[in-house]
Amino acid sequence: MNKLLLTLGVTALSPLALAKPVIVTSIKPVSMVVAAITGDRADIEQIVSNSASPHDFALRPSDLRKIANADTVVWVGESLERFLEKPLENAGKEASSIEWLALNGMKLHNFAENHDDHESHDDHEGHDHDKHHDDHDDHDHDKHHDDHDDHEGHDHDKHHDDHDDHEDHDHDDEHHEGHEGHDHSGVDPHVWLSPDNAKILAQVVTKRLSEIDGQNAVYYQANLAKFEQGLTAKDAQIRAALNKVNTVPYIVFHDGYSYFERHYGLQHAGEITVSPERKPGAKKVAELRHEIEEHKVQCVFSEPQFSPAIVKALLEGSNVNTAPLDPLGGKIKLDSNAYYRFLDSLSDQFLSCLG
């Protein structure tokens, strides 16, 4: 009898004993870095679907449940995903979340007023993340789009002064004190396009997982070492390949690739739109056609998250190449090698159109 009760007790407790940590992520690139560390020891639940864009997204009730049940929420930050800021606060998850933009050691870029400064991107300047960018007051990420009360995205219509402001952070803490103190206005939030920044996130995710799932800490730390070693090799491989096309002019769909471009020495000649959810007007299209001719642009990139009709209209009657450039890696299979394949896919997309 006692033996039977003991067996039943163990069986009843087993699901709890075997429960995996649940890591909720905002977008696919975040999931890729997290997956490199979790392996099969933690579950990842992503909020923004692979076919959607974080620039214009509204949470569903199921997403709110994911946040409430998460052991940790990993997101890029409020300047990209303002739709997460209030729900994290309401669920009491804000302090325990990992906000990529706010992590110690990140190298961040500001949006530029124009792209004539691309030659001067070599300097890395120190940046205090707690300081407000007083000279960027005209860039208001708090504004909602008129037709989207629940869709909070980027307003990139107003650019910023200093595109060569690479920001490096050296602080004692993993995060800066309190999310309320982070002013990321003016900062380009597409940080996942930098392998260096991916390493920073991987290190913090490893530390957090080791804290909430101590019995697998050695496993997570081994995955981090493997990820860092593999990323160093992949980075060198991609750099060698892209060096062959780093003088070829091209136009991107929107100004969201500066981390990848600067890291690998690429240089776009312009962008179709600075705010991806807004179509460019006739004047902008005319300016772009002039730029294509003037700079002898060889490729205009579209994005799978947005209609290619704009690109088709822009290139009508020309012989300029076009190809999709996916900054979110929507079709990449999510596993421990996903981030490597994501970098490969971006590199291949550039090479196919510029080579």
Rank of each mutant, 00 (worst) to 15 (best):
K226I: 03
A198V: 07
Q215E: 15
H254F: 00
Q237F: 09
V248T: 15
Q215T: 14
A236D: 13
N246D: 08
V205S: 05
G256I: 03
Y264R: 07
D255V: 06
F227G: 05
A236Q: 13
I238P: 00
Q203G: 11
Q229P: 04
R262S: 15
T247S: 14
A217E: 06
K244F: 02
N246K: 14
R262L: 12
V252L: 13
Y257G: 05
A217F: 04
Y259W: 11
V204E: 00
A225K: 14
E228T: 11
A217S: 14
S210A: 15
E261A: 12
I238Q: 01
Q203A: 14
N216D: 13
H263T: 10
N216E: 10
S210R: 03
Y264W: 11
I212T: 06
Q229R: 14
Q203C: 08
A236V: 09
R208G: 03
Y264H: 10
K244W: 05
F260T: 03
T247E: 12
A236N: 13
E211A: 15
A225D: 15
A241C: 02
V204Y: 01
E261N: 10
Q237L: 10
V205L: 06
N223T: 07
A198F: 08
V252A: 13
N246Q: 10
Q229L: 12
L231W: 03
I212N: 05
L231E: 00
G230Q: 11
V205F: 01
P249L: 08
F227T: 02
Y250T: 06
V245R: 00
L266N: 02
L224S: 05
D213E: 10
N216T: 05
L242I: 04
L224I: 07
A241T: 07
N216K: 04
I238R: 05
A225F: 02
L201C: 08
F227L: 11
E211D: 15
N223G: 09
P249V: 08
E261C: 12
F260S: 07
P249C: 12
Q237Y: 08
Q221Y: 04
K199C: 13
V248I: 14
L201N: 02
L209I: 07
G214L: 00
I251Q: 01
I251G: 04
T247P: 02
V204P: 05
L209M: 10
T232Y: 03
Q229F: 08
Q215W: 03
Q237S: 13
Y257I: 06
Q215P: 03
I200E: 00
K234W: 00
K199Q: 14
E211P: 07
A225R: 10
G214D: 04
A241G: 06
N243K: 15
Y257R: 01
I200Y: 01
R208N: 12
A236G: 13
F253H: 10
D235W: 04
L201S: 02
G256T: 03
T247A: 13
I238M: 11
A241H: 02
T247Y: 05
Q229H: 14
A217W: 07
H254C: 08
Y220G: 04
N216C: 05
A202W: 04
R239F: 05
E228P: 09
Q221D: 12
T247R: 13
Y219C: 09
A233R: 09
N246H: 11
E261H: 09
D255T: 09
A236P: 01
R208L: 06
Q237V: 07
G214T: 09
K226Q: 13
R239I: 09
